[in-house]
Design a protein around this nucleic acid. Structure first.
Lengths: 229, 229
DNA sequence: ATCTAAAATATCATATAGGAAATATGACGC
DNA sequence: GCGTCATATTTCCTATATGATATTTTAGAT
């Protein structure tokens, strides 16, 4: 078994949930952030009552939150055993993920280019600029966050909410796999993003579709060496 | 307010849950079946404690089940108000759904044709044959069920589990929209399915992809007259 | 008669308690 | 020393109780 999450040791008992809408939703946000940031490593037990004590709420909202995360595929459940964060993606799953991204994202980029507005162009440029690798010490977490926002903005720009939502779901699964990557990776990706955003903001549908396709393929090539199984 | 689900009147108090894995999972299956079969109409209140009394379990597993269904998008939740079955899909959502199907399913059909096995060919033929409109009185529910199984079998045949799962999710949303349809619709769809299965089982990748594309487009044309908003 | 406002009710949200299963611990025999 | 079995503990699963909020009903005034 891997390490245990939910014990009294981590987080020093600080971070309490604050009632915004409901406890369950807040717990979902906390756990999703913890899982996607790898603060909770993959395939790690998540104890209900430890978590309840740590967050200072009862077990009921915790169970609701874990049920939702289970439906999202971010945690798994075994009867009378408990919840686990989702395991690492294996090689086959990474292949499948990129196969699907290649079907959806280039098309979304094409549609977004066709529907481009000045406001969206500004948003894309801002995101792309923020990813410029000016500081070598910049964390990969930040890069991953901005990368996710950029791809989500492009998906949203396509006007198809269902595709956008599906891609967001894929991305959350994908996060579990990502490696803490090196500066050359972010530098390469930056250049591809610039090419992509240029095609998008100029309304070049063919160019945007092609740039997205190449970007995803190169992203796959960069990622593959880190594949475990 | 629309009608109320969960009262003591419907189902005559028969159908009790039987412990197989956990109550929550069983409740999810019951509610999903009820929603997809339109036994629970769209946009209908789902009361927690009524449901708990009806199924003979406490509120906790009910809440877990509803949380999962909410994450799946089959029910919506408002704080301190309760759960509702998802509303009808509007015109835009139907368009988006078919736009995405056209991206995934023809490709899946192509891959499935390339990977065809005798066992899968037999399965597809069996499903296709079962949908032959021999009996005019046959229920549309049964047709929809077989149609879902056929498309799922093709998606599974592609070898890409993530695409298969995504399509299954789309399909469950789609069920909410479907109209109780007429015999000519099932007859048309049957012919298209035969063409599709023939291309698939003969390993004709181009033909399968094209047949799937045309089938989905025609399915869209058949469905559109029923779009509400 | 209609509209407003306050009380009553129904339902949700959370907390707590007890029973059931699985896992961890330790003793015993080989 | 190693494997097996019984016990103890942990953790989960379900049920029930309490408090909070929205909705409905009802009483009163205009």
């Amino acid at each position: 078994m891997a390490s245990q999450i939910g014990g009294e040791s981590d987080r020093g008992g600080s971070r309490r949930v604050q009632r915004s809408q409901g406890f369950a939703e807040e717990v979902v946000n906390i756990l999703r952030a913890d899982i996607m940031s790898l603060r909770i490593p993959p395939d790690t037990r998540i104890s209900i009552d430890h978590l309840a004590r740590e967050l200072g709420v009862s077990q009921t909202p915790i169970r609701e939150a874990l049920s939702m995360l289970e439906a999202m595929g971010l945690v798994t459940k075994r009867h009378y055993v408990g919840y686990c964060s989702a395991p690492q993606l294996n090689r086959k799953q990474v292949d499948e993920l990129y196969e699907m991204r290649l079907l959806l994202e280039p098309y979304a980029a094409r549609r977004t280019a066709q529907r481009m507005t000045p406001e969206l162009a500004q948003t894309l440029r801002t995101l792309s600029d923020a990813m410029e690798p000016r500081d070598e010490l910049e964390s990969y977490d930040r890069f991953a966050q901005l990368d996710a926002e950029l791809h989500d903005a492009i998906a949203a720009g396509s006007g198809n909410d269902i595709i956008q939502e599906s891609l967001a779901r894929l991305h959350s699964h994908f996060h579990i796999f990502r490696a803490r990557s090196h500066s050359e990776v972010t530098r390469e990706a930056y250049g591809e993003h610039v090419t992509l955003v240029n095609a998008l903001t100029s309304g070049n549908a063919d160019g945007a579709e092609q740039a997205m396709r190449e970007h995803i393929q190169k992203s796959y090539d960069r990622l593959l060496p880190f594949a475990t199984a």
